Computed example of a mutant assay.
Amino acid sequence: MSARVAVLGLGAMGLPMATALARIFDVVAFDIAAERVALAVEAGATGVGTVVEACLGTDVVVVGVRDGAQLDALVLGDGGVADSLPTGAVVVVTSTVGEAAVRAVAEALAARGIRCVDAPVSGGPVRAGTGDLLIMVGADDEALAAARPVLDALSSSLTVVGGIGAGQQLKTVNQLLCGIHTAAASEALALAHRLGLDLDACIEVLSQGAAASFMFADRGPRIAAQLRGETPPLRSRLDVIGKDMGIVGDLARQLKVATPVAAAAEQLYRTVAAAGLDASDDSVVATMLAKEPAW
């Protein structure tokens, strides 16, 4: 297809999404880290050094950032997306930033004649690279139609749940489960480790029964590596899952919905982050849980 697509933010999800899109579209890629841009270039994208360059003549911008503050700075800051995109272009927000953040950005873009699609993704980096993501979409019909070819190229399952903000709402529910499942996987394998069980065998057995979950299968091998004193690849930063559980907690408090298990998981992530491990893979939680007490 001839559409020009910009991918802004080449982190754990942004880079594989750029890789998947470069197989189909003319992709330009930007990140503040030059080494990430170089990897995108190796995957077939054109690297650029500024947001302004990325947005020049671009039809669709795919944004992958860590949180609402980064989204606001990238889109609405000086020399950002809002100042650089042509009228009629569409911005696709793939990050989990919360309903309020995406609504504020969408309103500011609309005032400049730029459309917005709220499209948080789920599935992890491997599935992002193969175009096999689950995408939860909040958008009006016009914006969705403009972004649809890009969304289809990234997803195997795409669900439109309402207008702007609705995608973030559903993703928040999704992350409640993901955060709890990750914490539970860490607890289970920490217990298995202290029992002296073979962790690989535990993962194989538990993945076939009622205890199985996507998060256990995804995190299990990395948790086992951490417990053996190895350093697994950094794929899911602790501060990211902690941020997501913070969004869950904020929304639950706003709606006065009791979420005690999610709250416990959030506090677990905060505790591990406070130990200076916020930039580590979130599988590191298990090492904290498995430590023998000093008393």
Rank of each mutant, 00 (worst) to 15 (best):
T182E: 09
L134E: 12
S280G: 02
T50P: 11
A190R: 03
T96G: 05
A210D: 09
G162Y: 12
V93E: 15
M215P: 00
G124N: 07
V81W: 04
V161A: 12
A166E: 13
S84N: 09
A128H: 06
L195V: 02
V65E: 03
L251T: 14
A294G: 09
V48T: 10
V27Y: 04
V81F: 01
D152Q: 13
R237G: 08
I164P: 03
C202H: 00
R237D: 00
T182N: 14
A217T: 12
G229H: 05
E35Y: 05
I135D: 11
G14R: 10
V63G: 08
L227K: 04
D118L: 11
L109G: 03
V91D: 03
A166H: 12
M245V: 07
A211P: 10
P86A: 14
D140N: 13
P149W: 03
A3E: 15
A33H: 09
I247T: 11
V65Q: 02
T96E: 05
A82M: 08
P260N: 09
M1C: 10
V285P: 08
A34C: 04
G77N: 04
V28P: 00
Q226C: 13
G88L: 11
A18Y: 07
V52M: 08
G220C: 10
I114W: 08
C116I: 05
T271L: 14
S157T: 15
D26P: 09
G77L: 06
M136E: 00
K291A: 15
I223E: 02
G68P: 05
L85N: 03
V102R: 07
G196Q: 12
L154M: 12
D140R: 03
A43K: 07
L158H: 07
A18M: 14
